[in-house]
Design a protein around this nucleic acid. Sequence first.
DNA 1: CTGAAAGCGCTTACAG
DNA 2: CTGAAAGCGCTTACAG
Lengths: 343, 343
Amino acid sequence: MKERKKITLYEIAQLAGTSKSTVSRVLMNQAGVSPETRRKIEQIMRESGYHPNQMARGLAGGRTGMIAVVTPGIFSGYYAEILKGVDVVASQHDVHVISSFARGEDDYPDMIDRFSQPGQVDGMILVAPRMKVFKQRAPRTIVPIVLVGSYAPDNGWDRMDRVVLNNAGAMNELLDHVRQQGCRRLLHLTGLANVYDFAERRRAFEEYLLLHPTLQGTVLSGGETRAQAREALDRHLDEQPESFDAVIACNDDMAMGALQALRGRGIQTPEDVVVTGCDDEPAAEILGLTTLHMPMVELGEEATRLLFERRAQKQISPVARQSIVQMALVVRSTSMRKPAVPV
Amino acid sequence: MKERKKITLYEIAQLAGTSKSTVSRVLMNQAGVSPETRRKIEQIMRESGYHPNQMARGLAGGRTGMIAVVTPGIFSGYYAEILKGVDVVASQHDVHVISSFARGEDDYPDMIDRFSQPGQVDGMILVAPRMKVFKQRAPRTIVPIVLVGSYAPDNGWDRMDRVVLNNAGAMNELLDHVRQQGCRRLLHLTGLANVYDFAERRRAFEEYLLLHPTLQGTVLSGGETRAQAREALDRHLDEQPESFDAVIACNDDMAMGALQALRGRGIQTPEDVVVTGCDDEPAAEILGLTTLHMPMVELGEEATRLLFERRAQKQISPVARQSIVQMALVVRSTSMRKPAVPV
DNA sequence: CTGAAAGCGCTTACAG
DNA sequence: CTGAAAGCGCTTACAG
């Protein structure tokens, strides 16, 4: 039944015995079309399997029907879940999602530049951009931008909507728990310094130590990948064995590297050393890793909601919105010293 | 230095003291422009921060500069890696990647239909489409399609390029290894029957049994998710305890579910039961899960290469290409009975 | 409620 | 090697 020839809005108008204008109105869901005409046009569109040419719509109407999600090149598996959340909301608006991986941190500004030009996308979501991006003034673009898990300095970036995590609060809760497990010498395994969330978590860790003088704390830089985290901890164990009784990693991936390092030396978890992560990646559950749960799909959805709200505004608003997504402590076996719960 | 007013090809032509045609030629990388003129235009484009309007290019030239990747709604984390591979190759061609998650298997045909209309994308990659998609004849579309990890029945789908895995060969290697570990009663934990790769692996499992009469084999359906796999194995253990000494799961996720079920009953791995997966997801390494390694980024890259080769062809070619990606056995602790190797 | 016309910013023959 | 003109398929005032 479906036409194979490419069919245009003009053809639909012909078949309906009306004009392009009217067909366009029903396509745009605009008022001012008689119910009867509308019904007829809708039926013809359906029967003919008509899909409007996106490129033409974009050019004529100034709306591309696309948004871009830019993620760092190196990623934890959870970026896929954020992407899925974005897709859920975007598809409700009949908008496609362009996914781009930044190649190095220098690539970020270029991508922003490119996407903020007219005729590219209707908006962009920047996931965990590296701090370096913010060295330059924020582009004064008509294309709305939403930041996810990100810094927002006052050289213009603070005008943008953003979705952030309650890093400090969640970290506090986590450290309270670790302390209750009897740990006193805490090692914070941090990641790249230019990742905003990592910096926040580190700061929360250090502030917690100030408030709890009975605790001893160290910060160890674990590099970028799981393997690097493992190596870093290995070296640390060579130099200062038994110097800590808890590893607080800045994310699950690094926590897993830590687990490997400990296991390799026969150090028991959680008996000798408690280990915690952050993110609650799929693998965390399996490993019994205590972590902070981040609702990743939600994160993507919320960012996209902000984007569409912004897009819907007629004029530029002076209000920047910020959504704070709560992470929740998930206690599992890597930190559970007291009662042995069956898995 | 950067212009904020939107700048068009026409402006570039003005600045260069030439015509739109000539500017378009350098944009399209076409021959027939004096080196001097080309250099000048390129410089002006760079200085003005010009990016051509994609919508206009798409409408005028018939090339959208986008390709779509459609993935199933429920996904293992590894789809993100495929997406990354796609992005790597696509960006070399200055093409953007639209990522779409199919909402249920009925959504697949609709998406294919929509994307294959003109003015949408220049090509599409279908990742692990459910078998149901192939019930209907393949669309006779000008938009090239590449199938990844997929069936290709002869009702038109066999005209398409595809990237597949050496499921049977790899499964054989895996089963040889399991047999060498002393296992004789094998339980195959399979996933949704409508996933091509799962069906292939199951077939390979059954054929292996036919060739090795000393082995005993069972196939257990593990549902769709890790949790379901765990439950399925739990029920099986209730009904027929100690009926197997190896679990051969159709992917890592289900293998992890199996590990949970076994652990919950105090059954030792690999001493009592050997467990294997497939895919080599990030979590597999941590868990010490024996699996078949799938080079996921490569898979995405190869699919995209096929797509661009097809796009470059002037006329429709009668040749359908098939790339077979080799999976390799990765032996880890869940199947290593003989020598205890240090992790 | 409806239609004719202009125009979005490019590419692509075509003519020179 | 270069330019003028047509046209891609829509949306958007504008006029009725």
